[in-house]
Design a protein around this nucleic acid. Structure first.
Lengths: 131, 131
DNA sequence: CCATAAACTTGACTCATTCCAGAAAAGCGG
DNA sequence: CCGCTTTTCTGGAATGAGTCAAGTTTATGG
């Protein structure tokens, strides 16, 4: 995957990429933890750099919900969205409501050339909902 | 407006509320600046507190786009969304594509009880688009 | 196997936002 | 209009995710 994106294959990069695949929606802190279980000597700076490089190469996607730190996921390019629980912060994937990339059509784009529509559904997860 | 929300009417609150109405999509720093033009002695803490109270009372709405600081706007309750320019950060309002609150229906809500759908369109503003 | 550009380490630093504790002001019943 | 209670404001310090910079190491193409 890294070579396919014209990125050098280094141990930290492989470890970060695996961690993101193994822990979807993990925040940076968790990823650093997961990476250090394999490579105890990586700096947090390296993880930040790698995550930025992977995001720029579209190998991972960065999500940054209001009131939360940045999280990363490995599902890319499939135009899916997210639901977040207002109470416990649980984050889940949701497939796009109307097919491929419907949300790209705003009724009035103000003259902007839009390339992505990001949708976040807010509510309560099943557990918090019954409680 | 403040009384209607059962909030005490204080000078800082009035000033903050006016500032948000006068400068849509302003960040906290700008709001502090605008407020101090009228009331030079308000602390930044007061502005933060007031903004939180106003947000909780739904008199203003807080928006927190990725890679940006929190911004506030006075349009509330009309289910509108936002377009953001990837290049210059310009933020504009967009009315909801399909009427009242269409985005509330996710194809598969994972069992969540959803109460809001937040949509952010990313792209280039007219100016950055031509440049 | 070598040169070189890209990636990593270390440690300090930024900056939005929050926490704290004491001082001040608003609103209410009288 | 007056005190009392509650809420809000002030000022300063703290938090913490994320960034910067300089020097060292490492992957890769020839």
């Amino acid at each position: 995957m890294l070579r396919g994106a014209a990125l050098r294959v280094t141990r930290p990069r492989v470890a970060v990429l695996s961690a993101v695949h193994a822990h979807p929606h993990a925040d940076t802190e968790s990823i650093i933890g997961a990476v250090r279980r394999e490579l105890p000597r990586v700096s947090h700076q390296a993880v930040y750099d790698v995550l930025r490089a992977l995001t720029a190469a579209s190998l991972v996607r960065r999500i940054e919900p209001s009131g939360s730190v940045a999280r990363y996921e490995s599902r890319v390019g499939d135009n899916h969205h997210h639901v977040i629980c207002r109470s416990c912060g649980l984050l889940a994937d949701v497939d796009c409501a109307a097919g491929a990339a419907p949300c790209l059509t705003a009724s009035d784009g103000q003259g902007f050339s839009i390339d992505e529509a990001e949708v976040i559904y807010w509510g309560l997860c099943p557990d918090c909902s019954t409680a």
